[in-house]
Design a protein around this nucleic acid. Structure first.
Length: 212
DNA sequence: CGGCCGATCAGCT
DNA sequence: GCTGATCGGCCGA
């Protein structure tokens, strides 16, 4: 666990599809009660902007809930959904342009026992390691990510940040691509190939490895 | 102010 | 594979 540099503003200040690819293989770090809990990002989805009908900011929608999407690149956008789960996004692009990348799965890197403590006792010991951060709701649960992280600047926060483990994007052949999950309502945007995952990881959510 | 439903997950069939 | 959980945001009246 050698220290990698924290990702700076420039790392995030690009379009959502590029950031979604660039994030694969980087480390999401969270400090919870002073303990370092982290995972390597292995699955992401890009949400492009006001024209993307799958985005919370589709058609320029701007409400208190999605306000963070309009912030600076590197801002965390955390929302609560289905009455149960949080989802964690990284804002990208220009300030005022609502684009973001949803982080959907991690390979457990450090703090596994702290992650397990976030689970109900019935599943604390029986859950396979590869499932701990498999899925956007699950990874938020075990990393203690909730709306207190909404609007947090991931380039300067001392409770959550991204470490740049690699400077090169994963090779094209190693990145799987598919339609985004759970956006059946998004008309012609439903099938756009904006989900990206590391083929070498077994922690990709939903066991959905469709398409290329 | 009421009703609908979601960038999901777990548990059951 | 299906479905209920669970609740806050959003929209229409």
């Amino acid at each position: 666990m050698s220290a990698s540099p924290r990702c700076d503003r420039a790392f995030f200040a690009t379009d959502a599809e590029r950031l979604a690819r660039r994030l694969l293989g980087q480390r999401l770090v969270r400090l919870v009660d002073g303990e370092r809990v982290s995972g390597i990002i292995v699955e992401t989805e890009a949400y492009l902007g006001v024209h993307d009908l799958a985005s919370h900011a589709a058609r320029g929608r701007r409400t208190p809930r999605n306000e963070a999407m309009y912030g600076d690149a590197g801002t965390a956008y955390v929302y609560f959904t289905y009455g149960v789960h949080h989802c964690f996004n990284l804002v990208c692009g220009e300030r005022g342009e609502p684009a973001a990348v949803l982080v959907r799965a991690l390979d457990v890197d450090a703090g596994e026992s702290a992650m397990r403590r976030m689970l109900p006792e019935a599943r604390r010991d029986s859950t396979p390691t590869r499932d701990l951060c498999r899925g956007p709701g699950r990874l938020c649960r075990v990393l203690a990510i909730d709306r207190t992280l909404n609007f947090v600047d991931m380039t300067s926060s001392d409770v959550a940040w991204i470490e740049q483990v690699r400077t090169r994007v994963l090779s094209r052949g190693r990145i799987g691509v598919s339609a985004r999950i759970g956006v059946d309502y998004a008309k012609e945007w439903r099938m756009k190939p904006l989900r990206f995952f590391d083929r070498a990881s077994d922690a990709v959510s939903g066991s959905r490895r469709l398409n290329s």
